[in-house]
Design a protein around this nucleic acid. Structure first.
Length: 262
DNA sequence: CATAATGTTTAAGA
DNA sequence: GTCTTAAACATTAT
């Protein structure tokens, strides 16, 4: 679930806690949270988050001194907000309690994400070697990158060191909208089609954010609401097929998305 | 019971 | 150096 649009929703949710004084931080799962509870409280209690930053699938809650809480949601992570006296949501791994009684909880079923601190968000990002955010990347940078890549489109779009924020599901959507075969090699795609692909990255990401990352609210021409093998293609009379590309399920329409090679 | 699942990192092979 | 594949992480849903 958590790809760029989902994390952007989490950012907006967390942003509502901006400038609320932090009372304490509670760690419920010591493996999920990389810093000890005591250290988190030393850093954050009595402080407030003045800014929320998202880059790709990472979210940062930044204090006035630049110290930040870095969150990654893995495959099953999310945020949940509660008011005073409300009970803890299931799968809560870490809770931020505010003086005003509200709480922000980091949840994760599969525990693949994590919470950790950083002294400097930009240094942290450099260490993660993240590419430009999918909503920020400009056309030239994208075209140059694609022309130099011999890898297939699907793998390239989901490579966080090249472009950050696109995950397995939205990559399928983008390729479906661009009517490109997920296994086509980047450097074998005509420049005109690469330009279209660039447009679709923006269009899909912007649309998904606008629909609050709710797949069921996406337009009828979109793949994601019906992204499953055997379902009817939203664009033609064909059926959706599922294949594996670098170990990840890839859904596409074989009749809409023709390969540029053999 | 077996299998697949939205992500990332690391390793190993071609 | 480039690209591909697999495994590992830990757990849930079907």
């Amino acid at each position: 679930m958590p790809e760029l649009p989902d994390v952007e929703m989490f950012r907006k949710q967390a942003d509502k806690c901006r400038n609320s004084e932090i009372k304490s931080i509670k760690v419920h799962d010591v493996k999920f949270v990389k810093n000890p509870e005591q250290e988190l409280n030393d850093t954050f209690s009595g402080n407030k988050f003045v800014q929320t930053v998202r880059r790709g699938k990472y979210l940062f809650l930044v204090t006035g001194k630049g110290k930040a809480l870095a969150l990654h949601f893995g495959m099953t992570g999310s945020l949940s907000s509660t008011g005073a006296e409300e009970e803890l949501p299931g799968y809560t791994r870490c809770s931020i309690l505010f003086k005003n009684g509200n709480s922000l909880h980091v949840l994760s079923k599969r525990k693949l994400g994590y919470v950790e601190t950083t002294d400097d968000v930009s240094v942290y990002l450099k260490g993660k070697k993240l590419g430009t955010d999918a909503l920020e990347i400009d056309r030239k940078e994208f075209l140059n990158m694609m022309k130099g890549k011999g890898t297939n489109l699907k793998t390239t779009l989901t490579d966080q060191s090249l472009i950050s924020g696109i995950g397995n599901e939205y990559a399928d959507e983008i390729l479906f909208q661009a009517r490109l075969h997920p296994r086509s090699r980047c450097n074998s795609v005509a420049e005109g089609k690469l330009n279209e692909l660039y447009d679709k990255i923006k269009e899909v990401m912007e649309t998904a954010v606008e629909k609050e990352a709710d797949v069921s609210r996406l337009p009828g021409s979109y793949l994601l609401p019906v992204r499953k093998k055997g379902n009817d293609c939203p664009g033609c009379n064909g059926k959706i097929d599922a294949i594996k590309i670098s170990g990840r399920t890839t859904c596409y329409c074989p009749s809409c998305q023709k390969s540029t090679e053999g």
